[in-house]
Simulated scan of single mutants.
Amino acid sequence: MKRYCFALDLKDDEAVIAEYEGIHRSIWPEIHKSIIDAGITVMDIYRTGNRLFMIMETEDDFSFEKKDAMDAGNPVVQQWEALMWTYQQAIPSARPGEKWVMMKQIFSL
């Protein structure tokens, strides 16, 4: 198992945030399948204010390159990502075009 943690911001608008949370209470079945098919075994998203924190656990052979290729070839995933970006905004430290920014682990017990 591998674990990855990411950060992303939502647009700082209570109505936008509420709508985003509502969509995530019942994600599209094709999105759920694409996550599982990529080798992701756990995906949890937490929010404080407009900041999101995602924990992803994956199979040992998980590859971001493979997931990116799968997503690029899936029109439903592309539609989902375009919709999500209407709610999201990059965190200040993101590179141009980067959405979810991988966080560096600084402590482990």
Rank of each mutant, 00 (worst) to 15 (best):
G39S: 12
P75K: 02
L10A: 08
S108T: 14
R25G: 09
E59I: 02
H32G: 13
G97S: 07
W100R: 02
I36S: 13
Q88Y: 01
R25M: 12
I17G: 00
L83Y: 04
E19A: 06
M84T: 12
D68L: 05
L8I: 04
M102C: 01
I91Y: 05
I40Q: 09
M102E: 15
D68M: 07
G49A: 08
D9K: 15
H24Y: 03
D61Q: 11
F53C: 11
A90M: 01
Q79P: 05
L52V: 09
I17Q: 04
K104A: 12
D13A: 07
Q79N: 14
K2G: 11
A18P: 09
R47A: 07
D12A: 10
F6I: 05
W85G: 09
Y87R: 10
R47L: 02
V101M: 06
I55L: 10
S34Y: 01
I40N: 03
I106Q: 09
V76L: 02
M102S: 10
V16E: 04
Y4K: 11
E21K: 10
A18T: 13
G39P: 14
G22I: 05
F62V: 02
L83H: 08
N50P: 06
I91N: 06
E59T: 15
D44L: 03
R25S: 10
A94Q: 11
K11T: 11
D61G: 08
D61W: 08
N50G: 05
E81Q: 11
